[in-house]
Design a binder for these strands. Structure first.
Lengths: 341, 341
DNA sequence: TCGATGCATGCAATCGATTGCACGCTTCGG
DNA sequence: CCGAAGCGTGCAATCGATTGCATGCATCGA
């Protein structure tokens, strides 16, 4: 159990009485080294328990084969799905993935970005924090030509590939579904408007109303941070007003849940009296009573897509001519919170 | 946007007409350098946009300030909570965290372990895959004195700190609670018995029965992989038997949910007719109807604890005399699926 | 006034792998 | 028989930061 010294290519070279360069080339399967020599070297490496010092190689080659990922919270179903997708692609392509959470604060996000930069990650995938308004920490990357891919919460000010879910379409489909159920006064519990995903969800909602010839009513549109408590407050406010809604489209499932629980406590029937649709297809949405109609975002696929784009960019070195914004389809899942049987 | 060359300590040294060693020391706040010089250097570094090349430093110092984490699946609430805890502590201590998922296969786990090793992570935290039976890939680490901490699914054969939840106590408390509710025929839907966590949950169940003078009934104890379908099959089997139970303790919340849904479909009242207790406190367990009584495992705290122990070991270099197995308390959360009001 | 002391800084080696270029040997055509 | 060509290998520099040891300078007491 003693601390054995590392075996290096020099040790192998010495043992075989050849040069370290030959060993290095052989281990990298460089065809310039004869097959016989290559085999001999690999055998010796194996026997001597050689493990390449990747750090040394990274240092020399200026590549780390590592992708950095920053998400607001690891511990949230959508984000952990995205991470899972990233990890899957990255692993196949021989990249390690370093994951950090910004806890939705600008300070931490910025610090993490600097750390990842200093660690020379080959690329960065991120969804920005709610509080992030300045982007110097990201410009670092573009300045040094380090590929960057945004997902979900993207930033207009920076040129990069962006993977988003079709939030507009999701909001539209959800609202339209409510309209088709005969609802006329459809409220919306929306998210912070500095994040585009929430703008789009709301825009979809408004579009569906307009198409149906329904007047949008400012008093029915609320904004908050979409926590459990925010949702409860919002639904209370809606119900305390003069003219109560007959449906609520919530920008996430958490607030949809708050609404359902609050309404049930008040003895108001969901969906009979008020229909509810959420957003994100959180695992719980399927199993609560009533099950929550919601809009599914393909998190896993978004992660895969982001990783594919990033790795392609890393490998082709040149910055692409133009950056794409890829919109992944969202799917309305109709469940009992909005379906009157 | 041109690819600016990196600023190195040598550039700073040249600009200030001092040596690179002084720059290095100043930037590391080495008190041997006078305060005046330190300030001057830091100012210059700032102005020149200096970003340390951490890879070079890692190479030289043989430390990467990186912790590797291997979990079966990122995308599961318990594991993502643990990761979140690890990340929190690691971040504070200046460590990056590299996360990979084994997808519960030995092959991937082994490959990841080798990759992390070659990347010279300073330590490893892992929960082994269901399929892992051989441990050579982990012995690599112990041989090179690289600290290792297991959590949840631990390995007896390897000496290391281990963080586990009190599965025995959880099983015991859950069962005892059911007994206190007056239940006499308490079934158990258990998990794969090659994993110790499931052995312990069952042992706790048996212990509680025994203490209460209740005879354990083999026909009431089932084992499977605890998926949604497994749970449905299990509860069906229990209900189709001659002598049906009046309570079921499930080794996870997923099967508890299956049971509740199945029973509701059959018009059987939960908890009146049959009381249900699950395990893990999945987010959905609180919000389904009836809400599921369950045993909470402190995932986040387990992650924090694992990270603390690992980092301590990394910093003190010497392998500890003896390794601890830390059992984190589990907490019974009584909800409506088992509480007859 | 001189040597001792101590503080601040510089020199140079080092970590392990990679890689451009040079070199030596063999083979082959003219 | 000689030179060119080609193949396989080795030499040595390099990446950027760190660090043990040496050195220079100033201060101070005797």
């Amino acid at each position: 159990m003693s601390n054995q010294p590392e075996t290096t290519i020099h040790d192998i070279a010495r043992a075989l009485k050849i040069s370290a360069s030959t060993v290095s080339r052989a281990l990298n399967d460089n065809p310039i080294i004869s097959q016989a020599t290559r085999n001999k070297i690999k055998k010796a490496a194996e026997e001597m328990g050689y493990r390449p010092n990747v750090v040394a190689a990274n240092f020399r080659t200026k590549r780390t084969n590592t992708i950095g990922v920053i998400v607001p919270l690891i511990n949230r179903h959508f984000f952990s799905s995205v991470i899972s997708g990233i990890e899957e692609i990255a692993y196949e392509a021989g990249f390690a993935v370093t994951i950090s959470q910004s806890k939705d604060t600008f300070e931490k996000e910025s610090k993490i970005a600097h750390t990842l930069f200093s660690n020379r990650v080959d690329g960065l995938i991120l969804s920005i924090a709610m509080g992030t308004q300045s982007y110097d920490h990201l410009k670092l990357f573009s300045k040094r030509q380090i590929p960057l891919v945004f997902f979900d919460r993207v930033v207009d000010e920076i040129d990069a590939h962006k993977i988003v879910a079709d939030d507009f379409g999701g909001g539209y489909k959800a609202t339209r579904h409510l309209i088709e159920q005969g609802r006329k006064r459809i409220a919306m519990i929306g998210g912070p408007q500095n994040l585009k995903i929430y703008q789009y969800r709301q825009a979809g909602y408004l579009k569906a109303l307009e198409e149906a010839g329904l007047q949008a009513d400012e008093s029915l549109i609320l904004h908050n941070s979409l926590t459990r408590e925010d949702g409860t407050q919002a639904i209370r406010k809606l119900m305390d007003a003069a003219n109560i809604p007959d449906a609520v489209f919530c920008a996430n499932d958490t607030t949809a849940l708050s609404a359902i629980i609050y309404l049930q406590e008040k003895g108001i029937n969901v969906p009979q009296d008020i229909a509810i649709v959420g957003f994100s297809n959180e695992p719980f949405s399927e199993v609560v009573t009533p099950s929550i109609s919601t809009v599914k975002q393909p998190g896993f696929e978004m992660g895969k897509k982001a990783a594919v784009l990033l790795i392609r960019q890393i490998n082709q070195k040149e910055a692409p001519e133009n950056f794409e914004t890829i919109t992944m389809p969202t799917e309305l899942i109709i469940r009992n919170s909005s379906r009157v049987i």
